[in-house]
């Protein structure tokens, strides 16, 4: 019983702050603190190259240009609406580095901020003032529209 409890505690500690990546489908709906974000694939790609339209409460919010996209929200494992989303727009296809951006729905009006087009993100941690991104064994902090390299966060309390 003690072993089981120990394993449970360890799992809780090591899983804390880990946020799963979600692959976007042809139509995705994400509840955010600013309303409903809908990301829909365009029926036929026009000359402008737009592949997905993102709308917030039915109003145009952003466009994606890649063949597919993935995203992380800061509301994983909770039923709360997302306040922030990091979205990877694979503009070069499956084998190229994505264009990464942050949707911040805490701002009024919400903003879409480019983070980088040189990161292949494999993990994310959130703090109130920044988002920590792991790529290629390094950690970066995106805060105040600036990306900077930082030390790896400690596993507990992330």
């Amino acid at each position: 019983m003690f072993k089981l409890s120990l394993v449970t505690v360890l799992l809780a500690v090591y899983c804390a702050g880990t946020y799963a990546q979600t692959s976007g489908g042809d139509h995705n709906t994400i509840q955010t603190v600013a309303g409903t974000l809908s990301v829909s694939k365009v029926q036929r790609v026009q000359k402008d190259g737009i592949t997905f339209n993102a709308s917030l409460n039915g109003t145009n919010f952003d466009q994606l240009y890649g063949s597919h996209y993935t995203y992380y929200t800061d509301a994983d494992r909770t039923n709360k609406p997302a306040a922030r989303i990091v979205l990877e727009d694979f503009i070069g296809g499956f084998s190229d580095l994505p264009s990464v951006m942050l949707y911040d729905f805490r701002k009024i009006p919400p903003v879409a901020l480019p983070i980088s087009d040189k990161l292949d993100i494999d993990d994310i941690r959130w703090t109130d003032s920044s988002v920590l991104l792991s790529a290629d064994g390094n950690w970066y902090s995106f805060s105040g529209n600036r990306l900077s390299r930082v030390k790896a966060p400690e596993k507990a309390g992330q």
């Binding site: 503009i91 070069g92 296809g93 499956f94 084998s95 190229d96 040189k118």
Partner: peptide
């Protein structure tokens, strides 16, 4: 990890194709 330098075949079959 996707490296910055990838084989050209990967590029060809990617969205840049």
């Amino acid at each position: 990890m996707v490296s910055e330098r990838k084989c050209c075949i990967c590029r060809i079959i990617s969205g840049d194709a």
